[in-house]
Nucleic acid binder design. Structure first.
Lengths: 338, 338
DNA sequence: TTGTAAGCGTTATCAG
DNA sequence: CTGATAACGCTTACAA
């Protein structure tokens, strides 16, 4: 017994039995007599012995930690996902380690390398980007779930919203309100979610012969602060402004709206805005975003379920779960007045 | 070499040297010739060998993970703290594992037990509560930093805002605006930050002979949703309402304001509100909280610094860092009209 | 400078 | 049903 903590050898010695017996007893494995098992368990309970997880991991060849890589935990959408996934996996005996890539490919690759070094039990990626990552992923033989982003050649488990449809829906809603000139704030190019929303938007524009204007397309790194900056440019640089904007995520939209109001634009009177995610804040008085829900609860449940499936069945078939987006109409969109 | 990964033995064998030599070389320890060291490093680099962190940890007796226990990662105040702390510790070679206690003592104790089992390198507690926890903490011989909460008998490293002063400041601000009847939404009783803010509030009331009314005191679990519920009761149950409220944190305040407006109260015309934290959202148009900043950046820097100090110096003296709160006046407080 | 070997705390294999 | 004993991959005295 070192450092105030008991080891399995201590327990074995105290009982005059072998380590194997103790190991079997505490792990609920067969091969120990009922009487002896009870004796072991009683002592373990009494002295408060806990097996050393590191040693277990080394022996078993993997650690019971699932790595979760996401862009930025400060974004409520990701925070919700992380929270829910963590809760579910915890309740099944797994730990979750959250990494913030800060939307940076280099950092993401670093974390992927860590996954190898640590022998993590599984890997959940909420922000998988570029071919480099894709190559690494292919060479990694570990349970893996992709959430909300898709990699072209990836065929494993994944759960995502139908982002094309989401983008399409956004435009349809604006169209019904009479808007014809509709701009778009996209996310980083490497985000498939963003690209697909953009595609849906383009398609809707085409289907209804609405004009597409390159000048009305902006790019955000998904942060609120960036939304504010973008809005300032939007207000100042454009001689003729669109009457509506589709914005890649709620955080950017909240910032964007803030920037617009700061510069004298009224929302939705002067400009209608639809975004995506439906984070908790978007329902608040004073915000009240019209947004397209990604159903973060379902998304996290599926992600956790798929991970557990891979963790617990050796050769489970890969699933691709596709969630339907839902339009939530609040107060940032209104009829077009022209 | 198993599972596509090289072990130190593989490297040693390929070079015809011993494992110890490889170990010394890659860890930058003395006792290897320059030439041989270079040979080792070159091969390691070429084949992309990475030491197995678990095996290292078992051997060294601790794993390079710092555990960070907080109430709820979905609260932006905590998310900011976690993000910053993680970033700093990562850059010094430590991993951070975030646990959501969900403000529940039982869960917190579970996580503490995990710290023992895992032999985590350090422990950062942003939500330390009750005597049970206190006892456990005392018996744990691991680098430890308490953030934003204080335990009576704890003498180790800690960083916190002067919450008493913060509570006092909140009242002073309202007093200057002419308010006399001031209520309070407190946090859970186990939160020392909340209790001290409450004490500061009480003291200010006493110092200026303002009336204290038990009916005007509510309790929140720090969540936005709860703020909404509280506000509904506040509006409906009270025949005579105070003209101002001090609310324990921004998230509750945002919900509270929402609930008030939903029930026809105007903020700040009918009711002034001051809260604490100054999360990013509080600056948004449509929210614009008057709030007391806890300087989350400084707070995280100190927390990380104190942890690193303990991690890297064997017998560093404990420090208690106390941050001055700052009042940020925005638009949820206004003059009292009576 | 380099190698040998013991140990870190478990689990798993194989005898008894 | 139970006990030795060998891994797991690395670090670290101690020898050479």
């Amino acid at each position: 017994m070192k450092n105030g903590k008991y080891s399995i050898s201590d327990v074995a010695e105290m009982l005059g039995v072998s380590k194997s017996t103790v190991s079997r007893a505490i792990n609920g494995n067969s091969g120990v007599g009922d009487e002896l098992r009870k004796k072991v368990l009683d002592l373990v309970d009494e002295i408060g012995y806990k097996p050393n997880t590191i040693a277990q991991s080394l022996s078993r060849g993997r650690v019971n930690i699932v790595a979760l890589i996401l862009g930025d935990i400060r974004n409520p959408f990701y925070a919700d996902l992380a929270f829910n996934i963590q809760r579910i996996l915890n309740s099944h005996g797994y730990m979750v380690m959250v990494f913030n890539s800060e939307y940076d490919v280099q950092r993401e690759i670093e974390f992927l390398k860590l996954t190898i070094q640590f022998n993590f039990a599984g890997l959940i990626l909420i922000t998988a980007q570029t071919e480099i990552v894709e190559d690494m992923l292919h060479s990694m033989d570990v349970p893996m779930v992709l959430v909300n982003r898709i990699l072209p050649s990836y065929t494993g488990d994944s759960v995502l919203t139908d982002n094309f449809q989401a983008g399409y829906m956004a435009v349809m809603h604006l169209l019904e309100l009479g808007h014809k000139h509709i701009g778009f704030v996209r996310g980083p190019g490497v985000s498939s979610a963003s690209s697909q929303r953009f595609e849906g938007y383009r398609q809707a524009l085409r289907n209804f012969s609405l004009p597409f204007n390159e000048e009305y397309v902006y790019e955000s790194d998904l942060k609120m602060e960036t939304g504010i900056t973008l809005a300032r440019n939007f207000v100042k640089d454009l001689k003729v402004r669109p009457s509506a904007m589709v914005v890649v995520n709620d955080m950017t939209a909240i910032g964007f709206i803030d920037g617009c109001r700061e510069n004298g634009l009224s929302i939705p009177e002067d400009l209608s805005i639809v975004s995506f995610d439906d984070i908790e804040f978007s329902a608040m008085k004073g915000i009240e975003l019209t947004t397209i829900s990604q159903h973060v609860d379902k998304m996290s449940e599926h992600a956790a379920r798929l991970m557990l499936k891979q963790l617990e069945e050796k050769d489970a078939k890969p699933e691709r779960v596709i969630l339907e987006p839902t339009l939530v109409i609040r107060k940032t969109t209104g009829p077009c007045k022209e």
